[in-house]
Every structure is written in C-alpha cells, then in structure tokens.
Design a protein around this nucleic acid. Structure first.
Lengths: 355, 355
DNA sequence: CATTCTCTTGGGAGCGCTCCCACGTGCGGG
DNA sequence: CCCGCACGTGGGAGCGCTCCCAAGAGAATG
C-alpha cells in the first residue's frame, strides 16, 4: 500500500503538494499537478481513509440507521423506495451513505453499533429510519450532541426531521370516503408504537368526529404494514364483526393489497360492498384490480430530503433546526368508488402541506 | 472528545494500561482495571475509530455491497431475508456490518464507492450481493487482492462464494412437474444476466431434455423477479401462445405470486388447468390460495454463511478458497398438483447438495 | 530600486490510537 | 542469598494523513 510520501517522492514534490492535488486545492501549479496526477494514476494510489479522518476529524460518511422494527418490514416497497431516495441523494453529494441495520434480536446490538460506529465517529452523522416512538437512540444522540436527522417526526423532542403531515393526510382521505356517503368506515392501521400510525389514526378519528360519527372500536385493527398483515387484519375484522364496514382506510398500500385480497376471498366486491383507501401511492401495488385509491406521499423525496438535511446540518451547524413537512395528495381511483378507472398517473388532487 | 491519554491521567495510570483495558488485554491488574473502567464509564469515553484503524491497520467493519440490479428489487422478501441473515451473522461476530448500495444511475458512483469506501480501507472486506454475471467489481477486487466473498457463484473466476446448486434445484423441480404428467411446461425466469437465472434455466432445460422434450421458446419468458413482473410475464405468455402451458416453473416465489394472480384473472384454475412451481420457499408468499409448491433454499443461511466466510477469510488468510453450496429441497404443496393442502412447514423432501 | 504582494512549495507538528520494548517488583528455586 | 522469571506497567515510535506557518521567487507597486 503506497502512502502520500511515496507518491511525493515518485513525482519529485513534497507530501503537501500531493495532498493538495488529491484534495483539489487550487494552490498547485499546473505542471506539478499534472505530474502528480500521472503518478497517482499509474500507481493506483488511493489515500488511506483512517489517516485522513484522524487528521481531518471527519469521515465524509453518513449513516442511514434502520431500526429493528423497520428491518422486519424491509420488504415493503415503501422502505425500498425511501432507501433508494436516500442513497441517491448521498451519491449526488460529497458523502458516502452507508446503511446500518439493527436486527433487534439482542438488546446490546444497538448499543454496539451506537458505540463502535456512531459515537466512535465512524460516520459524521446519521439519518434515522425508526419511527418507533420510544426509540432510545434519539435521547442518546441528543445527549451526545451527535448530528442526526429523523425521517418521521418525533412526538416529544425538538429534533431535526423530515416527514409529511400524516394526521392531515389521513383526515383528508377519510373525509373523502365520508363524502362518498360511506358511514361505517374502518381502519387497518400500522403498529401502535409508530408515530406514523399514531398520526394516521388521529387523522381518521378527526375526520369521523367532524362528520359527527364515533369511530367503532370493532372496526379498528392495528397491523404490521405487511401485505400478509393486511390480509389477516381484514379477515379477522370480517370474522368478528356482525356488521361489516362499508369502507376501509388502510394505513399503507402494501397492507391495502392484502385487504383487497381478503375482501375478494370473502366474496365482497370493491368498491360496491366495501370501498378501500390506501396510503403511500406506491406504483408497485397497482397490479391489483380495482386500482387502489390512495394518499400519495413523496417517499423518494422523504429519503433524499433526510440526507440533504443532515448534510446541511454537518456543513452549517449554525443553521436553524430543520423540521420539514413535505406535501401529499389524494390519488383517487377506482377502489374508493370514484368514477371510471383512471389510468395510472392521472390523478385528482387535493391539498397538501409544506413549510 | 476525550482521548486515551486523558482517561489515563484521570485514572492515574498510563495510556498503555487504558488501551489494555479497552482491548480486554489480560495483562492488567484487577485494581487498575477497575479504576480505569470506572473512569471510562463515568466519562462516557469511546475510543476514536480513525486513530484505532490507523494504528492497527484494520477497521473491524465489513461491507455488504448491494449492486444496482439488486437495489431495484430490494422489495423481494428474498433480499430482505438474505440481508437479515447477513446482518445477524455480523452482529454475532466481532465485526460490524454496513450495507453499501449502488443505485446504478451514474457510472462513476460505483467507482466512487469502490475507491472511497473499499480500497481506502474503510472496510476490512466485503460480501457482494450482485449476481449480475459481468459485474466489473469482481475483477477489480481480485486485481487489488481485496478480501471478498460472493453470494452466488461466479461463472468464470475462481472466487470465494456461497450459493445453492441452482441448476440441480431447478432440474429437480421440473422433474417433479414431469412426474405429475405435465408436458407443456413453461418457465418464467429471472433476468438473463444473472447467474441464478442462467443456472435455473439450464436446470429446466436439462429436466425437459431428460424427459425427451424440447423446451418450447414460446413458453420461456424472462422477467425481473418482481410480483408485477411475474404477473405481466404470465399475462403476455397467455396472450401470445395459442396452446397454453399445463404447468409453469417460476424462478422465484415473488414472481410466482404474480403468476398465480394472472392465471386467476385469466380464468384458469391452479393446479387443474395450470400447475405452478415456485422457487425460494418464502413464507411471505403463502398468503395466496392455492398454497404454492416451491423449491426451498436456505436464504437466511446464505447471507449468514457469506459473512462467516468473509470473516474466516480475514482471520485466516491461509485457508483454502471457500466455495460452498448449501442444501435445497422441494416443498410440495397444492399448486403443483400434490395431494391435499399440506400445512405450512410440513414438506416432502428431496435431495440437496452440500460440501 | 526598495517594498509589498501573490503564488507555490516544503516541512513541522500533530490527530489518537496500537505495538513493542524496557523497566521495575516480588516470587520461587538452586 | 542471588539469579531468573513471571507479571504489571510505562513510554517511544510510529500509522498516513491534514493543517498551518514559513520561505523563496517573481510580479506589481510607489
């Protein structure tokens, strides 16, 4: 493995000049630069990361930390799209994005990663993809004053985050179902300990109350954001309730896909017997008939903005805290009872929120 | 940020002793150890990663590199299970596993990651999850003598890898369909540039030929390992062929799930009109009726073994090259025409290969 | 023509660890 | 009683960079 010093000797300049060339410092004569670059190329020299970070006190690497809860449902296109958005944003920057996954099987795994990777300064900052409300990592990062950005807002702490207004979005969706005339509206929500689930449930309740209706507990099920979970949730609701719902608000498209299949297996027609409204706006779930009405959220952007926010934080620590809400919109298609099947992409639009 | 030296002063010992405590070196008196540990805890001291790697010449971090082709189909439970297996194996070791994703949108992103993360020694070694046959990274790693393990065999190079014998597995699966008496057997394969697809196709052809049948090109479709892709592949096959198949071998359960839906939407019964055999043995795809017959492969193990192999490589460079095939088995359920629906888990078993 | 400035360049002093060698100290055996 | 040998311990010498300051060569200024 070659060092800076050796490259310097080979090209007849000093260590400092080679360092300047490597770091694109303008204070190098064209002649010297050319010579050094030739040697670097010829020797296939690549600077040692550890030495660099030790001397410069940064690594130019940022982490995307995926919490256990998420790891399990990694299969949801939601996460894959989000991750892709984040990775792409990382690639377009000067930073390299690396993904850290916790499996959650051992309590000290998280601690290990935190110490050995985060606090030891292997990364300059982290984007957290957790959404489990009580995730202890948030406290820890705050206490240690380590730079981080949450994807999904935090209920208590004033931390940097990027999110959509899930409450408002869910409210809009349920209000739309109410406008259709549905009255027994049920909900398949995500896990009760995720902020997104909590907010979406609150939006559902808000809408129902505005319409003067009390949400029926028999029509509320928490599931796990998987297709299978959606299927089972719908199945159990139909099995246990004497009076089935006339519409369902489902907190993710992936679960909605399971819900649609459960309804079909139960012999119920969508939207005639039961209307369905999803959440996410994933292209992946458009396989099924009837085409799913849903709340579109800019998932890819969510990932990208999270990364951008972190980089901004790293390079301008003096900036104000970042608390960004991205816009959402309803995509009204067949499954909620709206007109003829509308081709993918063409959509009716309602409000959204942004700061 | 505290340093070793400061901890040493605070606990009245030398830098060396603190280092020994941190690294679990037995050559420290109980008294000193106790004192130092107290100070470390009290000060919340965590050693600097860069300084450590610079001095010790290793990082104790390994990378899981996910190639662009894979990134797109990250939603396939196959990958999420594989990744979980790898992450878990990493957690159980002394290493930390970090995931690197290439998006493939820019040709030099891969180069950047390679230089800035791999060759710069940010990681001690990498596990490659690529399977695109001509992935240039393999050459590069080989040339640079950087430690790596492939998940999925390599057609040309003698490299370390972990895989199953896809050819034999596919052959077994198709032979089973032939035993049922099906004769017009079609295949929905994965992308033609992935080694797994190539091997599974070869197995399919082998089986057909052994039964004295020429595979019908009209019944061969390459798809992309997604549910949607499977749906479309089946749809287009049914649309274009005058004589539909009586059985389908599908190169992944996720695609098979799409195939089942396409058949249903086409008014064909499974297995009566068309039998279906999947590949992977994912629990996630068991939602659908009829329950899918499939080839089970130990996906989680594949990830774990990849990581173990790499660690072995790092700690015992003198060991022989690792080329490991894990066992597979047929899981015969309803969709291939086998008896009554068999409860999940209970399975008929056939051969497998292992070294 | 002396003075100031700009442009390039070189090298010292770390960054915070690990690794190795040397130095006590106290013990048992010859 | 002395020698050798463990056992703890301390400190020097790096690891391969970045950052800063100094210095020399010209160019520009009065």
């Amino acid at each position: 493995m070659l060092t800076l010093e050796e490259i310097a000797q080979l090209s007849g300049v000093s260590r400092s000049t080679v360092s300047r060339v490597v770091n694109d410092d303008p204070r190098v004569s064209p002649a010297a630069r050319e010579r050094v670059e030739a040697v670097i190329k010829e020797q296939n020299y690549i600077p040692n990361a550890a030495a660099r970070s030790l001397a410069s006190r940064r690594t130019r690497i940022i982490g995307l930390l995926i919490s256990p809860s998420v790891g399990v449902i990694l299969t949801d296109p939601f996460f894959s799209v989000l991750i892709q958005g984040a990775v792409r944003a990382g690639n377009d920057s000067d930073y390299i994005l690396t993904i850290l996954m916790e499996t959650g099987d051992s309590p000290d795994t998280a601690d290990r990663i935190y110490r050995r990777f985060i606090r030891s300064r292997h990364v300059d900052g982290v984007v957290i993809l957790s959404s489990v409300v009580e995730d202890p990592i948030v406290e820890r990062l705050k206490d240690d004053r380590f730079p981080f950005v949450l994807i999904g807002r935090h209920p208590h702490h004033a931390v940097n985050f990027v999110d959509i207004d899930n409450r408002a979005a869910a409210r809009d969706a349920v209000l739309h179902l109410l406008e259709h005339g549905y009255r027994r509206i049920g909900i398949v929500d995500g896990p009760a300990n995720m902020i997104a689930s909590i907010d979406r449930y609150a939006g559902y309740v808000n809408a129902m109350q505005e319409a003067g209706r009390m949400p029926d507990p028999a029509l509320t099920v928490h599931s796990d954001f998987t297709r299978r979970g959606g299927y089972r949730a719908m199945q159990s609701m139909l099995d246990t309730t004497s009076e089935p719902p006339d519409a369902m608000f489902v907190a993710s498209d992936t679960m909605a896909s399971g819900v649609l299949q459960a309804l079909r297996d139960f012999g119920l027609r969508v939207p005639d017997d039961v209307a369905v409204m999803g959440f996410d706006g994933l292209e992946e779930t458009l396989v099924s008939q009837p085409i799913l009405s849903t709340v579109y959220q800019p998932i890819r952007d969510l990932g990208a903005q999270g990364v951008h926010a972190l980089i901004d934080l790293l390079e301008h620590p003096e900036h104000a805290p970042i608390q960004r809400f991205l816009p959402f919109r309803l995509q009204l298609r067949r499954s909620c009872g709206c007109g003829a099947p509308i081709p993918t992409g063409t959509t009716t639009t309602t409000g959204g929120v942004a700061h």
